[in-house]
Amino acid sequence: MIGIMGIKTKLAAEDFFAARKRLLQMHFDSGVGHIGGNLSALDAMLIVFHEYLGAEDKFVLSKGHSAGALYTALWSLGRLQDQDLKLFHKDNTLLAGHPPAKGVADIPFATGSLGHGLSLAAGTALAFQLKGNGAQVFCLTSDGEWQEGSTWEALIFACHHRLSNLTVLVDHNNLQGFGSTSEVASMSPLWDRLKGFDAYLQIIDGHNPDAIRAALEGESQRLRIIILRTVKGHGVSFMENRMEWHYLPLSEAQFKMAIEEIEGSHKC
């Protein structure tokens, strides 16, 4: 596989730490929340963007509220610059709270309303199949997003059309906007619901880079679904598995504490 920059770059541990710090810095500078779900999704996004996404491939962020992780991944590739990130969530920015419709070439669709991304990715994958160009599509959904009926419509379509060039990553962090996914609308475990479909289903540790890589290298004769078992707020202990970090911005003291923890864990 060739990465988006044309060179396969296997990420090292320090790359994940650096991206996590930059994500927190960006959110702190802008006073913006939605941090927990960014931290749960960031590791897989970094691996896809650096190690698997070719020049013709597309990545669709269906859970648009993790735009911060998307911007950070593009920053880590040099596709966005520090000056872009400094404007995140501010007036006259390209980087809105959810992925923009125009202005960033690596972002194919404005998302943010849940339940659209998988269909958009399926249409893109079908286009690539009709063209016969061999390009791949990656789509990252949340776990709460599977409460949207349109996501199931998209799954039925993608399986029926055997979109083997489409990989669905599910950021399964167990928490949504106002409760845990099992409390709000239990399908727990989601993978049992998905097992009935004609797709290649894998359930992995969403923060283990080698497990993510192995899953992305797996069978590709059918639609590929990878359940990333993740931790909301991953890497910052006071955020982990806490629903409030779906929304809250960081205070200065919390930001310093979070950075110290990341730097400390990196040194270990």
Partner: peptide
Amino acid sequence: GQRFINAGVAEQNMVSVAAGLARQGF
């Protein structure tokens, strides 16, 4: 032929799939 797609009884998906196809020049 294969460019005629019965997307089934799933209009939300059908419209977004259409957007995905159009984004790639179809």
